[in-house]
Amino acid sequence: MRPFSYVSAPDVATALRAVADDPGAKFLGGGTNLVDLMRAGIEQPDTVVDITSLPLAEIGERPDGGVRIGALVRNSRLAAHPLIRARYPVLSQAVLAGASAQLRNMATVGGNLLQRTRCPYFYDRTAACNKREPGSGCGAIGGFNRGHAVLGVSGACIAAHPSDMCVALAALDAVVEVESVRGVRRVPMASFHRPPGETPHVETDLSPDELVTAVELPPSPTAANSRYRKVRDRASYAFALVSVAAALEVRDGTVTGVGLALGGVATTPWRARRAEHALLGAPATEESFRRAAEAELAPATGLPGNAFKIEMARRAVTATLRRLLTEGSPA
């Protein structure tokens, strides 16, 4: 690992100043992604600013009935919190479906939002990768791309966004609160992550000197009836091939509320707006679910290695909605 200097920030102001004064500085949360990437030589910060002592590890109710999650809340605590389990079960399930118990004990909410892709060419410094080295090409497009995206892709990069948590946050209309020396701003999940386009190395709306301080979940009657489904190569401790976060409200047989997002299939946590549009006001039937899934996947483009994900995603969407309709939430 390339040597770096280490600072532990006691408060937010110190953390913000440390990165504002030093373009080679990076925040360190649980370290489960950053330490790995530093060891592989892909991230090479001059200064590591440890933010785990910041007082941002609380989960609390907001006056409007929503919930505010501090950026330093560990993934395991988030999943186990009574408010999240009862009101946003899809978020508990999504977090529990990711990584392992050890990693979830270390990983923070902020770090999970900013984790980088698991594309094997990105990790292999001898391979071409536009994300790691802009302009060098993409090893995955003509190579091994079983894990890669079919939605939101570009000619420059097809890396799938790896997070489970973010898929649930997208379905729940979460808002990310970020702070820098310039002040505080709020970024909706839908615009937090950026599709690769011609600049796959730019992954989020965040500037390097901005700190994620919290995630806000709006109040939502739909969210209580929600589920996460993850399809992967082994039963546990594997990234998603396809995943679905869904919240559904049905009255008198008609869909009156829906939040839907997909993971594993897209370059960003994928809010399924076409499917939501097709579902709202439609009868809550298998046929509507299937039609909504088809609408969402219509623009998908597969390669020989990953085209199977398109039908897999259609089926996963349909099955998740069906289960929500027949069994309700896991809360």
Partner: peptide
């Protein structure tokens, strides 16, 4: 040992049917 402490504290897992 860590797992049994988590389970004892009531933490759910990905296969827990009723989260609450």
């Amino acid at each position: 040992i860590g797992m049994l402490a988590e389970h004892g504290a009531g933490m759910p897992s990905a296969v827990t049917e009723h989260l609450c």
